[in-house]
Amino acid sequence: MAVASRPYTSRGWSRKTTDRVLSYVALAFYILVAVFPIYWMAMTALKDDYDLVDVTVVPFWFGRPLTLEHFAYLFTNTRFATWLGNTFLISTFVVVITLVLCIPGAYALARLRFRGAENLGIGIFLTYIVPPTLLFLPMAQLVAALGLYNSKWGLVLVYPTFTIPFCLWLLAGFFRTVPIEIEEAALVDGCTRLQAVLRVVLPLSVAGILTAAIFAFTLGMQEFVYALTFVSTSGEKPVTLGVVTELIRGDVYFWGSLMAGALLAGVPVAVLYNFFLDHFVEGITGGALK
């Protein structure tokens, strides 16, 4: 073994080992914090109702046999599949709208030196700070005027109002990290501005664009206030609203099914994050350094 064959020096061994142990301890702590809610969610989804409140059993494990009845209830007594489908549909459209508007907008903010560009960028980002609890009333008038009340397409229209400011800022930061010399070289070689963007800047910015897409998708998935106030027909609801509507009845919470629903909605996104992890980290940190 490498460790056994290498002579220990107290200094080298202790530094490396200590660093490694500390890294793992920190990582273990982080994993515990990050994974515990998902573990708790899965446990709750698989426990029977009395097991959830029985204080005589260890709360972190099963006191009674596992049950799939909460999952079965979700699919046989609610329109969970429809809500999930609505959520993915809404989020997909939101991603498309966000990217179509943000890529040229962010590029303009990052590269085109027009008067007031910086203030405009800050102004756009500030709109992200205004919470939906303040905006839903005027937004309701707008959605109603467009005839999109009680329709998931109303949400497709409204959600970009909070995904665009964030993604615009994110992408503008990322575009600034692409060396301008490369773009200028493309222009010198005969590219138009548009060609330079399409053939040089965008391929180099895939990580940032993916990150913006993931953010827009998850922001669209999480939203609740606009969904609650603009949509009430069961077949039009996204999953965040549907499970709450059908599984919270007065002070009776269907905890098992609520957690089963959250788990089923959250797992695909977690898998998606995992696949794009490298790009995601690059996208997040790309705009941080220049």
Partner: peptide
């Protein structure tokens, strides 16, 4: 799932 009316729950559910 979102566009087709084929994902209805069984009759009798609260979201039916």
């Amino acid at each position: 799932s979102a566009c087709l009316p084929g994902t209805q729950p069984t009759a009798g559910g609260p979201g039916a």
